[in-house]
Design a protein around this nucleic acid. Sequence first.
DNA 1: GCTTTTTTGTGTCCTTGTCAACAATAAATC
DNA 2: GATTTATTGTTGACAAGGACACAAAAAAGC
Lengths: 162, 162
Amino acid sequence: MNKEEQVMTELWELFNKKMWLDGYKLKNRLKGYNPSEVHCIEFIEENEDSNVTKLAESFYMTRSAISKLTKKLIEKGLIESYQKPENKKEIYFKLTKQGHGVYEVHEELHKEYQERDKAVFEQITEEQYNSMLCFTEKFNKHLDSEIKKLDVDVTSGWRDNL
Amino acid sequence: MNKEEQVMTELWELFNKKMWLDGYKLKNRLKGYNPSEVHCIEFIEENEDSNVTKLAESFYMTRSAISKLTKKLIEKGLIESYQKPENKKEIYFKLTKQGHGVYEVHEELHKEYQERDKAVFEQITEEQYNSMLCFTEKFNKHLDSEIKKLDVDVTSGWRDNL
DNA sequence: GCTTTTTTGTGTCCTTGTCAACAATAAATC
DNA sequence: GATTTATTGTTGACAAGGACACAAAAAAGC
């Protein structure tokens, strides 16, 4: 295996493990809420005037899926929707008090993850950080342009733009 | 945002994009097969005597899901199962000719991905590679030990070991 | 201004994966 | 060697998300 493959493989495993582990902790701490819901709450808190489309773009999911997810969050009383007088089409979301409670717990959890992984990051030198950031930035830009080339809406079904 | 968060965030985005993009290409090239199926075929080809449990562990999925996936692959004529005379419990899988055809196409696709992303990897110095591999290896080992601490079976439902 | 196109959100059907319970076999314990 | 425990794979009910089609509103073109 060449180094390129090796890096990608290791990153793949890393992500699977971290997602599994974080999800496991989350389900134990926030019973009744799954990672998607919490992730959604996090985004709404941190991005003003978020709507179905913005959430879908950010999560690389369909608008359909987000529409159902937000509906459920409204029913659970975690978020509420609002509109602006000048636009009758777009529907925005914000957290309720209860939703904010979930957000806070998740923030704590996030700190716990960092604490848990501190041992790893402490060993990373400034230079190594820069190497990685250099790599991730380049790769992200590259993928953005490749996705753009397709001229496809990331938030809709496959055939929409074929 | 500190560097640690920055790295993780960028890696997260990178993976979402790459998975979306590769999945998109795959669905166009191998119509009728989805990423899970192809991923499964790939693993079976590259790991002798793979069974439901090994697949589940590797994919961080439940045995239940893999059981259904392999069943479908058998029905589609892409893989076949076999047993060993000394063990009546474990069921192993291998590819059929048709399955091997799919494997080959996926290999080509994989090379295309590499070709597509070559521009990024060419800019990475040997030293930067080593930095990243150092990081991923440490992190992977760390996560392995954290998962092991829980003493939970990754391939079964959440409550099995609680 | 009126028509056409795009954007935004939703509903229905279908696929995929989890959860939980289960049977069959193997391994461990006594 | 018999009994208990763990492993392996399967199934059915359910939940999450995608595919597709649609209506309503906004934006663009004329």
